[in-house]
């Protein structure tokens, strides 16, 4: 009687302490806590197991858990850092941190490059291993870019002639593939983005600036839940 019981904070597997995540991302501890609110909401939308499954991710993006989308699939794959088919809380925060307005632009450019490297055909060349040069991720612009343009047109029920698609792809290739080897390496990609900054607009989410307003969390602040 008169006893004041603190409810034990029951965190699901995959949970990581906000203080640790805040130390390696641009987020504050409060913002990571707010992200946990968002994460909980997303991760219990279909299966309440503390993990975001592909269907839950699709449901959040499209209001439809069955909607297939090439680009959403790639985002999910990149967020799923452990490649185990689900997004854990730590993976969610670390991946979203690249989209923070204060995240380094170089990280945004690199993330987008990996996103568009559809089949992850990155290769390490012997000379580069020997000289410890940067790993060059090469991608076949013609094939992958055309595939992505077609996916986008299909998504929006737009029809363009094959010639028009080729024209858009070739024009982009002429500008981006300065070495004229049919591929874009990370160096060419950085140059191309510099000339076309609108390409990385999608890598900044202004919502991440107002997280604590949208998803207020009092758990860490008070150390007590459900009071």
């Amino acid at each position: 009687m008169g006893c004041f019981c603190l409810k034990k904070l029951g965190h699901k597997p995959g949970y990581e302490a906000p203080i640790n995540l805040a130390s390696e991302t641009p987020f504050t501890v409060n913002e990571v806590e707010a992200l946990y609110d968002l994460f909980k909401k997303l991760s219990r939308s279909i299966i309440d197991d503390g993990l975001i499954h592909k269907e839950e991710f699709q449901l959040a993006l499209f209001k439809n858990s069955n909607k297939q989308n090439l680009f959403a699939d790639r985002i999910f794959e990149l967020f799923d850092i452990k490649h185990n088919g689900v997004i854990e809380f730590g993976e969610f925060v670390r991946s979203l941190s690249v989209f923070h307005p204060n995240a380094p632009e170089a990280d945004k450019i690199a993330f987008l490059f990996r996103l568009y490297d559809l089949r992850q055909t990155g290769c390490i060349e012997a000379e580069e291993i020997l000289t410890f040069h940067l790993i060059f991720l090469l991608y076949d612009l013609n094939r992958k870019l055309k595939e992505m343009v077609k996916a986008l047109l299909c998504e929006n029920n737009m029809s363009l002639s094959e010639d028009m698609v080729d024209l858009i792809v070739e024009k982009t290739m002429m500008e981006a593939d300065t070495k004229r080897d049919g591929k874009i390496d990370d160096e060419e990609w950085k140059e191309f983005v510099k000339k076309n900054p609108s390409i990385i607009k999608i890598m900044t989410l202004s919502d991440l600036k107002e997280l604590t307003l949208a998803f207020p969390s009092f758990v860490m602040n008070s150390g007590v839940s459900d009071l």
Binding site: L152, N196, I202
Partner: peptide, 26 residues
């Protein structure tokens, strides 16, 4: 309508699958 001047990556970036703002909708 796809403007002829639009580069392929600008076009791709309009995909709904790349619009993560939807995650933050209440």
């Amino acid at each position: 309508v796809v403007p002829a001047t639009m580069n392929a990556f600008e076009l791709i970036s309009t995909s709904q699958g790349l619009n993560l703002s939807s995650l933050f909708e209440k």
